[in-house]
Computed example of a mutant assay.
Amino acid sequence: MYTTQLDNGTLNNYAVEPKMSYAEYPTVWEQKRYLKQGAVAALFVTALVLVSFVVS
């Protein structure tokens, strides 16, 4: 942590900034995995909606 002190005695604390890293485009197998996860999530939400209609 980087700390400075002003003339009137006030302390200012500054956080250490992390090193920047850039996101990379997902590979083909990661894209397929995301597609499968999206399909499973859509089925799950659809099932929840259908169950809520049946119960009510």
Rank of each mutant, 00 (worst) to 15 (best):
Y22D: 01
A15P: 07
E17I: 11
T10H: 04
A23H: 05
P18N: 02
N12K: 09
K19C: 02
N13M: 09
N8L: 02
Q37E: 13
T10V: 12
W29M: 10
Q31E: 08
W29Y: 12
G9W: 00
P26H: 04
V16R: 11
E30G: 01
Y22C: 03
T27W: 05
T27K: 06
A23N: 09
D7F: 06
Y22T: 10
P26Y: 00
N8S: 05
P26E: 04
E30P: 00
M20T: 11
P18W: 02
D7V: 05
Y22N: 09
K36C: 03
T10L: 08
Q37N: 12
E24N: 12
P26L: 01
L11A: 05
V28D: 15
Y34K: 08
K32E: 10
E30K: 07
T10F: 04
G9N: 02
N8V: 01
K32W: 10
A23Q: 14
Q37D: 07
Y22Q: 10
Q37P: 01
Y25H: 08
N8I: 00
L35H: 04
T27P: 00
K19M: 08
V16L: 13
A23S: 12
P26K: 01
P18D: 07
T10K: 08
K36L: 06
E17V: 14
V16E: 15
Q31N: 08
Q37S: 06
W29R: 09
L35G: 06
T10S: 06
A15C: 10
K19I: 11
W29F: 11
E17F: 06
E17W: 03
Y22H: 06
Y22G: 03
